[in-house]
Design a protein around this nucleic acid. Structure first.
Length: 300
DNA sequence: CAAAATTCCTGACTGC
DNA sequence: TGCAGTCAGGAATTTT
């Protein structure tokens, strides 16, 4: 399922492929994707004629800045894909729900079997209005980097972005210790840390040598620093390898190519296999209704 | 058939 | 008793 590294992989490609393009027509064939809008037609009207000026990302959300100050926001959910088509003639994937055609030719298509993903057009906050920012993002950034949040009020409650927002581990410690919850719960709470899901939480915790159920306010300074480092490094590494494509799942980039980072997973989906560090068996437990994979020996 | 996992929502439990 | 924080569980969804 697309998490920060997969979304960033897509964002990097989109910024080369669609910036500067003008939207000629939008076709919505599954209204569920644009559920925030009163109608598919209203969504269409907001987009047609607009030029895409930028492509940024906040957590798992892609934000396309448009030439009138509004933004096209896209969330891939668990099975969403954005696909670049060179021409209308290219065969459409099953579950293609939205097609954006450009005046310069070509299309951008939104494909999503499970339809947990969504698209919507966001209106910026009126000039002079002060944005409401999540406490996590405020502490983490100390007032910086609120641009996307001002441009997209719907995303204001998201926590700091561990890749995009430059911050210190000391500030991370402040946010971490402000809660008393399991550290995996902390990492996957989008209002605290934006962009981490099940895969990268488990991989980060293995790299940090910490159990998923350690309380966020119980870590020593050394452990906090290790968690911070591991999180940043795992995400950077995963982006370098184009994200993870799982055996059952079908994450692909905008050209249909799978990612590579699954080959570097130490624990995720490795239940019953041996830990590469200590040779013991990787176990799987349920946490918050989600699978958690970890090594009982390497993670304390 | 159950499992996969996203966000959102509700109900219950805990500690002060 | 009330309240905030936390957590568990369910819905929506399709494919394997």
């Amino acid at each position: 399922m697309p998490e920060l590294p997969e979304v960033e992989t897509v964002r990097l490609q989109l910024s080369k492929e669609v910036v500067g393009r003008k939207i000629k027509a939008v076709a919505v064939t599954n209204g569920r994707v644009v559920r925030r809008h009163p109608s598919a037609k209203e969504f269409r009207t907001h987009l047609e004629g607009r030029v895409i000026k930028s492509v940024s990302r906040l957590g798992k959300y892609i934000v396309m800045g448009l030439d009138n100050g509004t933004s096209l926001v896209i969330h891939l959910g668990m099975s969403g894909q954005l696909r670049r088509a060179k021409s209308v003639r290219e065969v459409k994937e099953k579950h293609t729900h939205v097609v954006i055609a450009f005046t310069q030719g070509g299309e951008l298509r939104f494909v999503d079997p499970r339809t947990f993903g969504e698209m919507f057009v966001s209106q910026p906050l009126p000039e002079g209005t002060k944005p409401v920012i999540s406490p996590s993002a405020q502490v983490a950034m100390g007032g910086d980097g609120i641009v996307t949040r001002t441009a997209v009020p719907e995303l204001a409650s998201l926590g700091f972005d561990p890749v995009e927002d430059v911050m210190s581990w000391e500030r991370f410690a402040v946010v971490l210790r402000s809660k008393s919850i399991g550290i995996k719960t902390f990492l996957t709470d989008q209002d605290l840390v934006a962009g981490i899901g099940n895969i990268y939480a488990d991989e980060t915790l293995f790299a940090a040598g910490l159990r998923y159920d350690r309380a966020s306010d119980s870590l020593s300074t050394t452990e906090v620093r290790r968690l911070w480092r591991s999180m940043v490094e795992i995400l950077a590494e995963a982006i370098k390898h184009g994200g993870s494509t799982l055996a059952d799942e079908q994450f692909v980039d905008i050209f249909g190519k799978p990612g590579n980072f699954q080959n570097f997973h130490e624990v995720y989906a490795r239940e019953g296999e041996s830990c590469r560090r200590c040779r013991r068996i990787i176990v799987k437990v349920k946490n918050q209704g989600r699978s958690t994979f970890f090594c009982e020996h390497c993670q304390i």
